[in-house]
Amino acid sequence: MTDKYALEDAINRSGKTKKEIAAHLELSEQGFLLKLNNKTEFKASEIDKLCKLLNLKDKKIFFAE
């Protein structure tokens, strides 16, 4: 389960919009929001892209309980 609040904080700090991030991941904005809200899971490749895009040091926010 993704830590939605930590990911949203990282997005806000990046200065990018959710729409821009969705496009970078080759997702619709709605598809990205489903993943952000834990309705569907992020793929490993999407996690890698997000970590690079948002300059996240580790992937722990994608594996919260």
Rank of each mutant, 00 (worst) to 15 (best):
residue 20 E to I: 03
residue 40 T to K: 14
residue 16 K to C: 06
residue 30 Q to C: 01
residue 44 A to T: 06
residue 16 K to V: 00
residue 10 A to Y: 02
residue 59 K to V: 05
residue 65 E to N: 15
residue 34 L to N: 15
residue 20 E to H: 09
residue 64 A to I: 11
residue 32 F to V: 01
residue 30 Q to S: 15
residue 11 I to D: 03
residue 5 Y to L: 14
residue 1 M to R: 13
residue 44 A to D: 06
residue 18 K to R: 12
residue 37 N to P: 02
residue 62 F to S: 02
residue 56 L to Y: 10
residue 48 D to W: 03
residue 29 E to I: 03
residue 58 D to S: 13
residue 13 R to Y: 12
residue 23 A to P: 02
residue 1 M to D: 13
residue 28 S to K: 07
residue 61 I to F: 03
residue 5 Y to D: 12
residue 27 L to K: 02
residue 34 L to P: 02
residue 19 K to A: 13
residue 30 Q to L: 10
residue 45 S to V: 11
residue 44 A to S: 11
residue 24 H to Q: 12
residue 8 E to R: 14
residue 57 K to V: 01
residue 13 R to G: 09
residue 17 T to F: 03
residue 30 Q to R: 12
residue 43 K to Y: 13
residue 20 E to N: 12
residue 29 E to A: 06
residue 36 L to T: 04
residue 43 K to I: 07
residue 23 A to M: 02
residue 38 N to L: 10
residue 63 F to Q: 08
residue 53 L to F: 03
residue 39 K to M: 10
residue 36 L to C: 10
residue 45 S to W: 07
residue 8 E to G: 09
residue 37 N to A: 05
residue 16 K to F: 12
residue 49 K to T: 15
residue 19 K to H: 10
residue 62 F to R: 01
residue 2 T to P: 04
residue 51 C to Q: 15
residue 3 D to E: 06
residue 49 K to W: 06
residue 21 I to G: 04
residue 55 N to H: 13
residue 36 L to M: 10
residue 42 F to T: 02
residue 2 T to I: 14
residue 54 L to T: 09
residue 54 L to A: 07
residue 10 A to R: 11
residue 4 K to D: 01
residue 50 L to F: 09
residue 22 A to M: 09
residue 18 K to I: 04
residue 58 D to K: 05
residue 39 K to T: 00
residue 48 D to Y: 11
residue 6 A to V: 07
residue 52 K to V: 08
residue 28 S to E: 06
residue 51 C to K: 15
residue 64 A to G: 10
residue 11 I to E: 00
residue 37 N to F: 10
residue 47 I to L: 04
residue 64 A to C: 13
residue 43 K to R: 15
residue 44 A to K: 07
residue 17 T to H: 01
residue 30 Q to N: 09
residue 13 R to C: 12
residue 33 L to P: 00
residue 38 N to D: 15
residue 23 A to Q: 11
residue 13 R to D: 14
residue 37 N to C: 06
residue 24 H to C: 05
residue 61 I to E: 01
residue 25 L to M: 08
residue 50 L to Q: 01
residue 31 G to T: 09
residue 65 E to S: 15
residue 21 I to D: 00
residue 8 E to N: 15
residue 55 N to K: 14
residue 36 L to H: 05
residue 27 L to Q: 02
